[in-house]
């Protein structure tokens, strides 16, 4: 099967095993710019592994992943790291903010890793924190802010490099529904405004409802519900 024309990131026939456990068994995926796709499925279905493969964090055992016309398998670790630094953004469930850096330093971190000067990085970081309504937390450390605030800081950090793909793995998993909703609203709005694609791993329907379409992952196989119909 070939990826649909115009897709930004596409994968086919992905296989990945961890020891005796088969995490992915022929999974497929595709997303185009500006689209929000939810990866759904029960725990252990392989949805996080699929996200890690798509983001170039994990190398699949077999199959191909093409990002912007480039086959990921041909890139080495440094190139994939560089890709993650500049083209991708990440939000995880928790434990992603560096506890000893202030919030604004955390948000500025990806820019600094890309070689932007500290001053400029922090200015851009503050802009994004403003968009996510957490600019007043700049000088605080992650330990001093609430879970919802921390997650918004994390979203700001994921978007600060204006990535073309934003990977979000259970971004609201540790939040209550009101905070979760707000984070999802801000995340999808921000992503749409920059025409970024969003790969959203979630097991919550109400979170998945922020997506344009969903892909169900079960036993390492994926099912694109839109194209199946």
């Amino acid at each position: 099967m070939n990826a649909p024309a115009g897709s930004l990131l596409a994968a086919e026939a992905l296989r990945k095993t961890y020891g005796p456990t088969v995490a992915l068994d022929g999974a497929e995926f595709s997303i185009h710019a500006g689209e929000v796709v939810a990866l759904m499925g029960p725990s252990g279905s392989g949805k996080s592994t699929l996200l890690h493969c798509l983001a170039g964090i994990v190398t699949p055992d077999a199959g191909s992943i093409v990002y912007a016309g480039r086959e990921m398998a041909t890139m080495n670790d440094a190139e994939r790291s560089a890709l993650r630094r500049s083209e991708f953004g990440f939000v995880f469930q928790f434990g992603q903010l560096v506890p000893e850096l202030t919030c604004v330093e955390n948000v500025a971190l990806p820019l600094r890793l890309n070689g932007t000067s500290r001053k400029e990085a922090e200015r851009t970081a503050l802009d994004w924190m403003q968009r996510l309504e957490v600019d007043d937390l700049g000088r605080k450390r992650p330990g001093e802010v609430s879970g919802g605030q921390g997650q918004r800081v994390a979203v700001a950090r994921a978007l600060v490099t204006s990535p073309r793909v934003l990977f979000a793995d259970e971004p609201t998993g540790a939040l209550d529904s009101l905070n979760g909703e707000r984070v999802m609203e801000l995340l999808t709005e921000a992503a749409r405004s920059t025409n970024a694609a969003v790969v959203l791993v979630t097991h919550e329907a109400r979170v998945a409802a922020y997506s344009d379409r969903e892909i169900v992952v079960r036993d390492g196989k994926s099912r694109d519900m839109e194209r199946a119909v």
Partner: peptide, 12 residues
């Protein structure tokens, strides 16, 4: 967890 997250977003 933090280290993995840092590596995920491209820290060398």
């Amino acid at each position: 967890k933090l280290l993995s997250a840092l590596v995920a977003f491209g820290t060398r």
